[in-house]
Structures are given as C-alpha cells and as structure tokens.
C-alpha cells in the first residue's frame, strides 16, 4: 500500500521541497569514529541520500562507546569494518553497554546492516589470530575464527599475513539478483542452524571460502563481507533496507523509483572484474 506522499516522490535525484513526505527514518551509526575503514561510511551516505531524494527525512544518530541506546528510537542500525585492535576496543561496549537494547530492537523489527568486523561482532564469537576470544552480540547464530588461529599459523610479515586472507572482488547471488563488492577479511565465519546466509557466492570466498555461503540474515538484520561500499553499487539492497525500516513505523511503503543509471553502470563493470 502506498500513500499519496510517497507517490509524489521524484525520481531524478533531487528533492522536491514542495512535495516533502512526512516519513522519517533514524539511522543509528555504531562507532563512527572507531570503525571508519574501507569507505563503509558510504553506506550511511547512500541511505541518507536515497531517502532525501524521495523526501524522506533521514537522521543519522552517532552511537559511540558509552552512548546508551533507546531501542524504539533507531529504525536502522549500521556498523562498519575495522582492524582487530579496534574490534577489541568496541567489543565490550557493544555486548555489555548496548547489547540488550540492540537485541530488543532487532526482535521488535528494527533493521541492521553490518559490514565485515561489524558482521563478525554481531555473531556469537570472534577468535582473533592473537589474544583471547571476543564474545559477540549473538544476534546471528555464527562464529568467526581468524584463519591463522584456525590453522595455528604464526603471522610474521606481509607475505604470511596475506596467505590465508580472503581478499578480492566478490559477486553474490541474493534473491535472484547479483550483489557486487570487494572482500578483505582474515576471519572465517561459520553459520549455525539459527542463521540463514544472505546469499550464495558466485565469485570470491564469502563467509569462509568453503561452503559458498556469504553473509547472514536474522529477522531484519543483514550481515555481509561486501565492502565497496556495498549499498551505492547495489541500490536494490539499499532500497530493500529502507523499505523494511519504514515498514516498522508506517506499514508497507512503496518507494518511488529513482534514476539508478550510474549505479547500474558501476555494477555492470564490477560484475565482470577478475577476482
């Protein structure tokens, strides 16, 4: 069902202030000052812009270490990638300070997009190549083991660090569509019975380089290893998440189509890259 407000949204990429819809969306951006690698920030920009172009008021709420969360206030959580050392820093805060609020929100239908380290931390456990295991949020029934920990190998230089790492362009089949991006992770993620994969690996390693699965979905939480950032080159996934996030407050909303010509060109190039 769509309302006249959404029908009025323009599709050219520029907002029309005269026909602004009354829809609002709050994006909770987890640890923006800590997890800022690999351009994952671009996913938040993509969500904001695609809302703006449709006259949907999107607000970004930074959720840093020690920031408490009101589970009813966040429509869509985002968490990006980072280094092992950064992961350790936020692990405690994520599980102890924010854990209950996030799990409550997800059970109540909030949406989440988790990339790489964010995805790993939303699983049950992360085992790094040195140091103790880190407990994760447990939203996904998934465990991630660093390849060097799994194979009990020592990492001493660039060459040995690169050996088991999963790095390269990736193509994933998701709901009959193709998602494109770049993966760069040392962790191998194994899904339990309570999680289903986001999609099937067409090219690349995906979750663990073995079972051809990539990412995880639990309720409206989506985890993936796709960098790129993933959303601008896969606008169908971006709009899927925006739609789910609006649904929580407004019921089913038909999003006005946008002109995705440039995004489609970028995706077409990415579909034909070498690994």
């Amino acid at each position: 069902m769509s309302t006249p407000d959404e029908e009025a949204c323009r599709s050219t990429g520029t907002p029309d202030p005269a026909r602004r819809s009354a829809l609002r969306l709050t994006i909770g951006y987890l640890y923006p000052s800590v997890l800022s690698q690999y351009g994952d920030w671009g996913n938040v920009l993509c969500l904001e812009q695609r809302c703006r172009w449709r006259g949907i008021a999107a607000e970004v709420l930074p959720l840093e270490v020690d920031t408490p969360i009101d589970p009813s206030a966040v429509d869509l959580f985002f968490m990006g990638g980072g280094a092992d050392s950064q992961q350790r820093l936020i692990a405690r805060d994520l599980v102890v300070v924010k854990g209950d609020a996030i799990r409550t929100a997800i059970e109540a239908g909030s949406v989440a997009l988790l990339i790489c380290a964010g995805y790993q931390m939303w699983g049950r456990l992360y085992r790094p190549f040195r140091g103790d295991d880190l407990a994760g949020l447990g939203v996904f029934d998934a465990e991630t083991i660093h390849w060097a920990a799994e194979e009990q190998t020592k990492i001493t230089d660039i060459t040995s660090a690169g050996r088991g790492r999963m790095v390269g362009n990736m193509v994933v089949e998701w709901e009959g569509r193709r998602l494109v991006g770049f993966e760069n992770h040392g962790g191998r993620t194994y899904l339990g019975a309570g999680a289903r994969p986001l999609g099937r690996v067409v090219m690349g390693a995906g979750n663990n380089g073995k079972d051809r699965t990539e990412g995880a979905i639990y309720r409206h939480a989506y985890g993936t290893y796709l960098h790129g950032p993933v959303l601008p080159k896969n606008p169908a996934l971006a709009d899927h998440l925006i739609g789910l996030a609006l649904q929580r407050r407004y019921g089913e909303v038909a999003l006005a189509p946008l002109d995705d010509g440039l995004e489609a060109q970028a995706q077409a190039v990415a579909l034909h890259l070498r690994r």
Binding site: D40, G42, G228
Partner: peptide, 15 residues
Amino acid sequence: NDNTQDSRDVSWIWD
C-alpha cells in the same frame, strides 16, 4: 584504475 599499484579495492574513494 584498479590495478595492483592503484589499489584493487576502489572503496577508498568513499573515504
């Protein structure tokens, strides 16, 4: 470009 010397991962342009 996305050759090895450019960085094969072009996501840096978003940063």
